[in-house]
Amino acid sequence: MKAVIAIAHNTFRESIRDRLLYAILFFGLLLMLATIILGSISLEQDVKVIKDLGLAGIFIINFLIILSVGTNLVSKEIDRKSIYTVLTKPIERSTFIIGKFFGLAATLFVTTAIMSTVFVAVLLVKHAGLSPLIFASLVFTYIELLFLVAIALMFSSFTAPVASALYTLAFFLIGHSMTSLTRFGEQAGPFVRGTITAGTHLLPNLEKFNIKNQVVYEVALSGPQVLWTVVYAATYITVLIIIATNILKRQEF
């Protein structure tokens, strides 16, 4: 456990020293403030525009951080050969992967918290009202980001950063296309329909975390919806970490 915390702490320190992170975060904060301007030219639809743009902005900025920082979490250590100094110590490879995961998760928690604070402040300034759904959406966004960290980490354990970023992006696009895929499947023959149905159950379904529409139109979340979404994320992330660990175990250093 101590080793996990040490690796996580180190990963967190390393990522917050990255200048790119500050550049991305700066643009994120600008985006939050820009919601006020865009909202003001929306014919009184400002609250909707601010909520849509704010929630999407928090996700996009953090996703960019994952693509720039998360996708080279392991490969950078391999390239710089710093992984040797870690793995020569009595540290399991699973500990290394879990530590990396929690390190980036902590970084994303900080960036999400900073941007969410500005977002909430903008909503308060605009007298938009703060429903619990907004906070629920922020939590769901963070869970989706953890999901993507696990995907990025898995790819980072065996591919170069650019390829890893592209694969993570592809999984993001697939993960949000499940409704369309299901619709295609309904129009296809039994074999294709079966394949697509299996695919939609096996591939990560990121639409489960997208409750932005419910936030904007104040549609309450049900208890089972929250519970099953959290269970889904926790189990899938665990599987991705196990896969990443096994890939790393097969590698010779």
Binding site: D52, L53, A56, F59, E207, V216
Partner: peptide, 8 residues
């Protein structure tokens, strides 16, 4: 993933 944003 960004249907509302695109609508806006």
């Amino acid at each position: 993933g960004f249907r509302n944003l695109t609508a806006d």
